[in-house]
Deep mutational scan, measured.
Amino acid sequence: MAEQVALSRTQVCGILREELFQGDAFHQSDTHIFIIMGASGDLAKKKIYPTIWWLFRDGLLPENTFIVGYARSRLTVADIRKQSEPFFKATPEEKLKLEDFFARNSYVAGQYDDAASYQRLNSHMNALHLGSQANRLFYLALPPTVYEAVTKNIHESCMSQIGWNRIIVEKPFGRDLQSSDRLSNHISSLFREDQIYRIDHYLGKEMVQNLMVLRFANRIFGPIWNRDNIACVILTFKEPFGTEGRGGYFDEFGIIRDVMQNHLLQMLCLVAMEKPASTNSDDVRDEKVKVLKCISEVQANNVVLGQYVGNPDGEGEATKGYLDDPTVPRGSTTATFAAVVLYVENERWDGVPFILRCGKALNERKAEVRLQFHDVAGDIFHQQCKRNELVIRVQPNEAVYTKMMTKKPGMFFNPEESELDLTYGNRYKNVKLPDAYERLILDVFCGSQMHFVRSDELREAWRIFTPLLHQIELEKPKPIPYIYGSRGPTEADELMKRVGFQYEGTYKWVNP
């Protein structure tokens, strides 16, 4: 592979701008107003304001973009700056750019259920340069409990009458099928589907988006991507930290609602779906819905739930269990780990287990898709061969690698495990991989909904998990304890083995 010439960040961002501006969906010269509902909250200060700053800094926003914060707290732009700027990672050389960014910011205080507050917000936006005809993007960085009041008031008082209007809704989209349907029906009564952007930030990850290209742009994968060759698929999300004093919020939802029903299920769809007619948003989402419709409700015998306990040999936070978090209700049975087996009941995947695993306070930070292939028929190497695996590593250190057998150097035919490896950090030294939120917010500006969740996708996802969630809430089974920093409950490994996964433990990928 030829040595790549190092590029400056300015040059890299210039390439990104060229890609972005050559499309006809990006209205570079139009006025846009980006409204952050819930501007005083954690999500706004840690993710949304920093993301908008990065896009502005790199010249990736339309030229005439204004940012308006809205929340109940009586704040000023200076207050917003004070709480969000520490997350910007701005350099001293960017000081003038930073001043320009905050000059485009404003803030309006108001209630979430008060019509007069929204009329005041609308008047404020109209007073901005060309504000009355601007395109408006409303980001709901809010708890779902206020979605209905907020969307109703936005629709009645704050819509642009000339430009387009788009609304970005953060997960969780309800707690179960019934609450999700209620919320979807409410929002759909106010906005068209092409105006609604239900954001799952995992769909903005580079390697998640790469799944489609790997599958449908490489001839070698087509013939082997089926039940005849693939023994099982494992989708993993692991965090090495616990709730760390923020367990009160987590306890309301648990690990299945927080990660599995959305992030992991979306990745499953991209692995299992048929080739779409095109890369058009609805063509892709149509195929994802077909996959979900082929999955039956989760069966309790295919589920393992766990909850982390303190590690007596650990240090600091590792010595504390979930129930030691003062914000967690006493005696909570909320799971911090889950392993679930699903089956896609169609011709391509009949009988292939899709194993979804996620948890907190585990032994490493990792998100990946792992396809394990069947054993080689007619073994001539005296059971020395391990199964081939194709691994798409989402985070950290984005990579695609194939675990395969090669001859060990020497005189004899002794096979050993090795890999074919594409590590993004080595291959793409001159490429700026956008943060997931950067990519998705740019998608909203461009009107691309491919990486957002459609209402029928959402409904099918909740259909699969709601009976299990209701059973857990009714019966309150005690989750299996696992030690902070471990791989999780051993019962999860036993479940995976029972459905056909072979864990060798003899080879570990190392970032080159």
Score class of each variant (00 low, 15 high):
34 F>E: 03
148 E>K: 11
95 K>E: 14
42 D>H: 01
137 L>R: 02
225 W>T: 01
69 G>Q: 04
37 M>R: 05
213 V>C: 11
137 L>I: 12
107 Y>N: 03
131 G>V: 09
45 K>V: 08
225 W>N: 00
214 L>G: 02
85 E>A: 12
42 D>L: 03
134 A>W: 05
223 P>L: 06
137 L>N: 05
172 P>I: 00
218 N>K: 00
17 R>F: 14
8 S>F: 05
229 N>C: 09
154 I>W: 02
231 A>Y: 05
221 F>P: 03
248 G>T: 02
165 N>L: 09
139 Y>C: 05
21 F>K: 15
67 I>E: 01
131 G>T: 12
187 I>G: 00
77 V>A: 08
255 I>G: 01
205 K>E: 05
128 L>N: 08
65 T>I: 13
53 W>H: 04
252 E>P: 08
169 V>W: 03
128 L>Y: 10
188 S>A: 15
11 Q>R: 11
61 L>Q: 03
245 G>N: 14
87 F>K: 06
7 L>E: 13
156 E>I: 13
253 F>K: 01
170 E>S: 02
112 Y>L: 01
104 R>V: 09
75 L>R: 10
23 G>E: 15
195 Q>L: 07
28 Q>Y: 14
135 N>H: 12
187 I>H: 08
75 L>I: 14
81 R>H: 07
113 D>G: 10
106 S>D: 08
199 I>V: 07
58 D>G: 07
93 E>D: 11
188 S>P: 06
75 L>T: 10
103 A>W: 10
159 M>K: 15
166 R>A: 02
31 T>R: 11
215 R>N: 00
221 F>Q: 05
165 N>M: 11
186 H>Q: 13
87 F>I: 07
102 F>Q: 06
123 S>G: 15
190 L>M: 13
84 S>Q: 11
132 S>K: 14
30 D>P: 08
202 Y>D: 01
18 E>Y: 07
14 G>F: 09
159 M>L: 14
143 P>F: 02
197 Y>N: 05
174 G>R: 03
51 T>V: 11
176 D>H: 05
70 Y>V: 14
101 F>E: 04
188 S>T: 07
79 D>W: 06
212 M>E: 02
198 R>D: 03
22 Q>D: 11
43 L>C: 04
63 E>L: 14
45 K>F: 06
44 A>M: 01
16 L>Q: 12
88 F>M: 13
154 I>F: 02
197 Y>F: 13
240 P>H: 11
66 F>W: 12
41 G>K: 04
8 S>G: 08
144 P>E: 04
115 A>S: 13
45 K>S: 11
222 G>H: 11
235 L>K: 02
62 P>G: 09
196 I>G: 04
234 I>H: 15
233 V>M: 07
191 F>N: 01
207 M>E: 00
250 F>S: 05
233 V>G: 03
86 P>M: 10
28 Q>W: 12
223 P>I: 04
65 T>N: 01
181 D>Y: 06
220 I>C: 11
45 K>W: 05
227 R>L: 07
40 S>G: 09
47 K>V: 01
132 S>P: 13
46 K>H: 05
181 D>S: 09
157 S>R: 13
101 F>G: 01
51 T>P: 00
234 I>P: 02
195 Q>I: 05
73 S>E: 05
160 S>P: 07
153 N>R: 13
225 W>G: 02
244 E>K: 13
246 R>A: 03
99 E>I: 08
107 Y>V: 07
163 G>D: 01
28 Q>L: 09
253 F>C: 08
130 L>E: 15
164 W>A: 06
256 I>M: 14
100 D>C: 11
101 F>T: 02
213 V>N: 05
136 R>A: 08
58 D>I: 09
111 Q>T: 13
34 F>R: 02
211 L>M: 15
244 E>C: 12
169 V>R: 01
183 L>K: 03
67 I>W: 05
64 N>S: 11
154 I>H: 01
187 I>N: 02
89 K>T: 08
147 Y>H: 01
65 T>C: 13
6 A>P: 13
213 V>R: 02
87 F>V: 06
208 V>K: 03
81 R>W: 10
181 D>W: 06
30 D>Q: 14
206 E>A: 07
58 D>T: 10
209 Q>L: 04
63 E>K: 15
51 T>F: 07
44 A>H: 03
157 S>F: 13
256 I>W: 01
9 R>G: 11
249 Y>F: 04
103 A>S: 15
198 R>S: 00
123 S>T: 14
44 A>T: 05
207 M>A: 03
223 P>H: 10
206 E>Y: 09
25 A>F: 13
117 S>F: 10
166 R>V: 01
250 F>Q: 01
38 G>K: 03
120 R>D: 15
49 Y>I: 09
23 G>P: 12
100 D>M: 12
114 D>P: 06
204 G>V: 00
246 R>V: 03
121 L>H: 03
76 T>V: 10
248 G>I: 00
218 N>M: 03
173 F>W: 10
52 I>L: 09
120 R>W: 12
228 D>R: 08
33 I>H: 08
169 V>E: 00
164 W>L: 11
248 G>Y: 04
109 A>V: 13
48 I>S: 03
142 L>I: 07
179 S>V: 02
123 S>E: 14
27 H>T: 08
170 E>N: 03
44 A>F: 00
81 R>G: 05
186 H>R: 12
6 A>G: 09
102 F>I: 06
180 S>F: 05
221 F>H: 08
192 R>F: 10
9 R>Y: 15
165 N>V: 10
209 Q>V: 07
133 Q>W: 09
46 K>G: 01
212 M>V: 04
117 S>A: 15
228 D>M: 11
134 A>R: 14
245 G>A: 11
79 D>R: 09
128 L>G: 07
108 V>Q: 10
76 T>P: 06
106 S>K: 09
224 I>W: 04
242 G>N: 06
154 I>M: 10
95 K>M: 15
95 K>F: 10
109 A>F: 11
32 H>P: 07
128 L>D: 05
254 G>V: 01
24 D>H: 11
226 N>T: 09
132 S>W: 13
249 Y>L: 00
150 V>I: 10
83 Q>E: 10
205 K>G: 03
191 F>V: 06
34 F>Y: 10
